[in-house]
Design a protein around this nucleic acid. Structure first.
Lengths: 202, 202
DNA sequence: TTTTATTAAATGACTATTTAATTAAAAAAG
DNA sequence: CTTTTTTAATTAAATAGTCATTTAATAAAA
């Protein structure tokens, strides 16, 4: 029993949001994108809300996967590389697609009035902070690590948000440069040395 | 002929967005907040779109005013103070109000599908960048000034966006600390000295 | 008297969801 | 294997409601 309809409808939801905005993404329009009857949304998701929640879950999972994959490819002791992996995951090409960007933003504003979406978004927000803090704590005091983590997280979201409004879209490469620059100016000299030694030693 | 209705309806629009979200902010609900008939929205704004555009204009103007006021109180030669004024304006108490934050975010996501709103938002985005760049160019090379301006702008928007999802709201004081810290690490030593001398000299 | 402000009511289009019916697939029984 | 029975998938149509906007009328102001 291959559940083909659910991903199909989630993709259609993102297409609808991309082309007309969440405001006008009615079940009629979404189901038309998927080439099925509107009633099928209720059958598989229990209603429009269920579909929207599932769509957001899907977007969050893709981001989470992109970060996890990149972290898996780094030396567990190379703090700088790991932070760059986290940043890179957030600016992965899968995250820069217009469909995905507009869906993200739509849900971000929607989350403030929808308990379920709010909770999802908040977990995601805290996870980014937690990932960054865990790495930073290895090269600076905890309090400072928390501070810098908030800075990096803000840079990620801010660059992403500003890019969403730019006609050309998000410049992932520039994003990496800005955040790497920030990170290097925050690291104590000892951490940079340690990092380089570690990398050389392997 | 005191045009009392327009600001009244704009305020009602923000109240509606604050309590139910833009999605459900119908002309019926908005006009109920204002205590008038729905038809009056068409009379004064030509339609719902006109009202939304006017509301966004109002929000943008409040931000612009907050920045301009603070810039007016600084020494034109004190670069650091002026950048802090720009940042401070963006985190002015008027900008941290729940009504305003939710309205901002709603329009941000709406702008992608609405020519008029997109243009407004983009002008605002570019103005922040331009303000920052103008100041930074006095203490670093133009190319670097552009780079740092993008960093500060991203930090402002990122902290603001993340704060919007936080139950406690935006922490304006922490925002200033993070951004000031960023700025100080970007300034060449000469600029810091210059700044301090200028301030002492007055 | 002419214009402006305001509203109640009507309009027609669109909303999400439900119902009932139909088709296709899977399971069970022969 | 077939045939029958049961379950799941899918839809067209109906429902009840909300949407923004228009119309026509009334009240107020100029």
């Amino acid at each position: 029993m291959p559940e083909i309809r659910k991903p199909q409808l989630i993709k259609a939801t993102m297409q609808a949001i991309d082309s007309t905005g969440l405001q006008k993404a009615s079940v009629a329009i979404i189901s038309r994108y998927a080439g099925v009857s509107p009633a099928i949304i209720n059958h598989y998701f229990g209603g429009k809300d269920g579909l929207l929640e599932a769509t957001m879950r899907s977007v969050l999972k893709d981001l989470s996967d992109a970060v996890r994959d990149r972290l898996g490819d780094t030396d567990p002791n190379d703090v700088v590389a790991r932070i760059k992996a986290i940043v890179g995951g957030n600016f992965d090409s899968s995250q820069l697609d217009s469909k995905v960007v507009k869906t993200w933003l739509a849900f971000w504003s929607q989350a403030m009035h929808h308990h379920a979406l709010f909770r999802l978004q908040r977990v995601n927000e805290q996870r980014l902070l937690s990932h960054l803090r865990r790495e930073l704590k290895r090269v600076m005091e905890p309090e400072r690590a928390q501070f810098v983590a908030q800075g990096i997280a803000a840079l990620i979201d801010g660059i992403w948000l500003r890019g969403a409004l730019t006609p050309g879209g998000i410049n992932g490469e520039l994003a990496q440069r800005i955040i790497t620059d920030y990170l290097e100016r925050q690291l104590p000299p000892s951490a940079i040395t340690e990092h380089r030694l570690t990398r050389t030693a392997r």
